[in-house]
Design a protein around this nucleic acid. Structure first.
Lengths: 143, 143
DNA sequence: CCACTTACTTAAAGTCATACAACTATTCTA
DNA sequence: TAGAATAGTTGTATGACTTTAAGTAAGTGG
């Protein structure tokens, strides 16, 4: 029985510890914007452009009924609008409002601000780290 | 307005995306063991040795009343035992049972298995990544 | 055109977690 | 030793999310 797991496992465990335990920002985000983290995530997903409810659900990993609840809520707060999809009148395109964009930006600032420990790395280490992680994200996304 | 955030921010965003979105294991863990992720985390925290309720609460980031609920539940399932702390009879030491240890190990295997994309890195990249992340964890923990 | 599918909505029930308030038992301290 | 602090328990309320079931409206294929 090996006491020391392989480098890939150790790297993965460290990454999880950093994001989930040592520098979890999710509570801070929902505190700051006064709504759940999932709603913040929804707003962020909508930043690049309007999405049909279904695709929003895929992005959030939740099913249709709860998407309706979330979009209802965001709409009541004036952060998104539902528009009929001209290409398919069954579907609705959800679009962020200016106010919604501001909320998304606030959430993004909080969660995207790197921990101080990361900023303390040398420039070379940071560049290396960034480059490896970017490749990991890219290869994970195409699938 | 810079369109491209600095390397530290990019690295942090990638790390968050990998852990929270692209390779989230939390649902898989709780599915596999038939209880919530927080309970799995409690069992894992207890692996190194018994802890008083209070310290378990600190580790899980939840308050005393809910710790009682969690430990009640784990005890009913035969995964932990409460023992009176001989040093302070107000406090109780929570100890994992053999069964609890097995559940913790199952959870750990699922969540610690690195994504295929990580295993696909070169040995050199993996070593570099692991070393930088380990330093980040260490500097984040001492605080 | 009719049956089928798709996109979304509505409603209800259940689980998990958070937050508070009030309580007991024990230990510490002035 | 009396009063304050600490460790844990009990109970209640609420919020966030999941899941299931059933329904409406609009598109699609034979």
């Amino acid at each position: 029985m090996s006491n020391q797991p392989d480098p890939a496992t150790r790297a993965w465990q460290s990454m999880r510890a950093l994001v989930l335990d040592l520098h979890d920002r999710r509570a801070a985000v929902s505190d700051a914007i006064g709504m759940s983290y999932l709603r913040a995530k929804a707003l962020r997903l909508l930043l690049p452009g309007p999405l049909p409810m279904g695709e929003l659900g895929t992005g959030l990993g939740t099913d249709a009924p709860y998407i309706t609840v979330i979009v209802d809520d965001l709409e009541k707060r004036g952060l998104v609008r539902r528009e009929v999809n001209p290409a398919d009148r069954r579907s609705k395109l959800v679009q962020v409002s200016t106010a919604g964009r501001a909320v998304a930006r606030t959430a993004d600032e909080i969660q995207s601000t790197p921990p101080a420990e990361l900023l303390a790395l040398t420039e070379a280490d940071l560049a290396t780290l960034e480059q490896i992680l970017r490749r990991l994200v890219e290869s994970s996304e195409r699938r």
